[in-house]
Design a binder for these strands. Structure first.
Lengths: 145, 145
DNA sequence: TATATTTGCATCGTGAACGATATAAATAAC
DNA sequence: GTTATTTATATCGTTCACGATGCAAATATA
């Protein structure tokens, strides 16, 4: 009885574990450059579009500003980004890549492929990944409300 | 150029986000009983088999003991589990459910279904979830080494 | 049996996550 | 134009995660 409580029947535990383990796979690659995985996510956002307010970065990553603000301060301390008051709206804090922050893109050029290769296995291949993306995107969309 | 750095092409970001959002979905249901999601996972493990050493619980959840130990201490403080030195091996710390810990199973009986329903959507249905489980299990197995 | 190694757990420090709350600037309502 | 509300960000407290390290009990080795 109570198979519903079995760990093997839990979607959330699988997501939680897969997320942690895959983040761990990034660790040696990013740590070499003094980065954490959430900091790497901020870089992905800024590499796509530089000079964004805190709020835009947080929304893109589906995080709260109270998570992102301290993270950005650490990145500022490491000279990866600058933070400066917005011109038109003084409430905003505009985050901008430094030369070092932009330069990290080249240094991390092999990271996506390295990590991508690490997860390739029986049921997870270039052919099946798009289907996995659809399901995860649906779950995220659903839970965002 | 550099589509490989686009957030939309990242498996890890999807897992990370889906995991966080699904954990958030548990929050109101568990918080009502003073539980966090990782504490709920410990309960799932102990409900399956009571009286386990810290190490067995940690291994089951693929966590380190330095994560699990403080978590168990909080659960002990909340009178959900007891922790006592092992008889045959004095290094072990045996974790056992209290009456309250066992009783929580009945109180949380609706949680799996409630959360399960919350993720049902277009591409995630009782028919497609098993396929998703296979892929996530493969990823976990692969990353465990 | 004395010493070395392994094992199980704990402590410490750092960096997320996140709920709750605070503050100042911008905007809306009166 | 003054007051009320919303918005953008920050601060605070608690709980994970997790690498690094410490310590005592158990086991292996000499």
């Amino acid at each position: 009885m109570d198979d519903k409580f079995k760990l093997e029947n839990q979607l959330c535990f699988r997501l939680y574990t897969a997320s942690r383990l895959l983040t761990q796979a990034y660790h040696p690659l990013l740590g070499e450059h003094g980065l954490t995985y959430p900091q790497y996510l901020v870089l992905l956002v800024l590499w796509e579009k530089d000079e964004q307010p805190v709020n835009d970065i947080a929304k893109r990553l589906l995080l709260e500003t109270n998570t992102v603000t301290p993270l950005l301060k650490r990145m500022e301390a490491e000279d990866i980004v600058t933070r400066s008051k917005g011109q038109e709206d003084a409430r905003q804090m505009i985050v901008k890549l430094t030369k070092k922050g932009r330069g990290l893109q080249k240094k991390l050029t092999d990271v996506p492929e390295t990590v991508g290769n690490a997860v390739i296995c029986e049921s997870v291949t270039p052919e099946t990944v798009p289907g996995l993306f659809v399901m995860l995107d649906d779950i995220i969309k659903q839970l965002k409300q």
